[in-house]
Design a binder for these strands. Structure first.
Lengths: 245, 245
DNA sequence: ACTATCATACTAACATGCTAGTTGACAACA
DNA sequence: TGTTGTCAACTAGCATGTTAGTATGATAGT
């Protein structure tokens, strides 16, 4: 009933880019296309063109789609078809909530247990962020930003934590792709990162959590503005179904 | 090198117990057998007996195993076999950490937004717990305990939260099956639940979090004692591999 | 013109055959 | 007896044929 347009399979990254089994590589290829919005919300995810483009049979593609459905990136309609899921403010809000829960637990633990070596690595990352802003390297700053949060999670010693955090906030990451980074926002982000870093360095759990909460709190209002501007990407009529594990 | 004994497929719950696609039902059947320790850690998960027992072909079974591997309940060795994963203190600790992060965020939000209707439902659950203890209905109390936490998560309005919380702490749930509930521990648990309930009713975020943290903190020491008693269930030599999403 | 009915062309789900790689046992040998 | 090489049996991964259910568009009826 909505936009039954098909995906453009040629936008799939080649599977030789990735490693692992065929199914694993197909999964990563499709996932990247969805997260980069090369496969827009609502698009029909047809198996045949994907098989043709990637040069594989239907089995690994079906396997990949099963995993994507479990993560909520696609909606499978039995015996009918598979579509890239629309944005849903409910799901995005939930992803942000889960993400915040994990980030707060992370900074608390890191503020408690920070070693001198870890402090140096964080400090280096923050100073790198300064440099990249001076050079107006937006993409570089985006990458350093991701690394800042990844470092914190790595310091907890929890191996699966980065993966879990990424999975629960997939919808948030996808929506974030649509937000244009302005110089003003980037400068603010740096200041927020620095506040987090300072609180952690001082081993001040509570201050670190407050700083992180403030930092993460900047995102949702911007996404909500996005919904006003591009409502066609969102599912206003929530006919989505999701199975329980 | 370890115990290459096979699973006893007859312990699989019949798939007519569940609903959804064949693959979905096979997944739930195997998952239940693993969590109930009917399939013990290290056991060889052979496809053929599973297909025979459940009366399905290999396709839905393979699909189910893919999902179980993603959740870390089984370890797939390519071109060799699939085994039920051993307990790992690292993974259990991580699961407890993630679970605590989510539960703390949950009680904070619920303490903030609690409605009178929700308060009544919680109160009813706590009083039910009292009754079940009086009747010495251990299984009933276990169930009410689960429901207590499920209610809190439901009250946040986050639809996926219960599922995420369950998934990240699957290993903890499995290990918990081995802990024998003593009357003393059950009485303590009730007191802890009541403390959480009181703090939430008073809309005291911090007290609710402290109470929840104390409550969840009781579990890990008991599991660590378990490791001393039954080390054969744990992977002392961590040769586990897990792919990143 | 507008609606109800039905046939056709799609799809996911499932079954099954094939391939290649790992493992473990056994034999040949030191 | 201890070690190494070979082989057979088993596995997951992959390809492909089959089935059944859904949606769409043509057609017939009003």
């Amino acid at each position: 009933m909505n936009h039954p347009y098909d995906i453009d399979a040629t936008r799939l990254p080649d599977i030789s880019t990735f490693e692992g089994s065929l199914a694993q590589r197909v999964y990563q290829s499709i996932k990247q296309a969805i997260l980069a919005l090369d496969f827009p919300p609502g698009a029909n995810l047809r198996k045949a063109p994907i098989c043709a483009q990637l040069g594989v049979s239907r089995a690994p593609v079906a396997d990949a789609i099963t995993r994507l459905a479990a993560e909520g990136l696609v909606d499978v309609v039995p015996q009918s078809g598979t579509r890239v899921s629309y944005f849903s403010m409910d799901e995005i809000r939930e992803g942000a909530f889960l993400r915040e829960a994990l980030e707060l637990a992370t900074v608390a633990k890191v503020a408690r247990d920070l070693t001198e070596d870890q402090r140096k690595k964080l400090s280096r990352n923050v100073r790198l962020q300064e440099l990249l802003i001076e050079d107006e390297d937006i993409a570089g700053f985006y990458h350093a930003d991701e690394e800042f949060h990844a470092l914190l999670m790595a310091f907890t010693g929890m191996l699966r934590l980065p993966d879990v955090a990424q999975t629960v906030s997939l919808q948030v990451s996808r929506a974030r792709m649509l937000l244009l980074p302005t110089p003003g926002r980037i400068a603010e982000t740096l200041a927020e990162h620095r506040a987090i870093f300072d609180a952690i360095s001082a081993h001040d759990e509570r201050a670190a959590q407050d700083a992180m909460r403030h930092h993460l709190g900047q995102l949702m209002p911007r996404i909500e503005r996005l919904q006003q501007e591009r409502p066609q990407l969102f599912n206003l009529n929530p006919q989505n179904t999701r199975e329980a594990g």
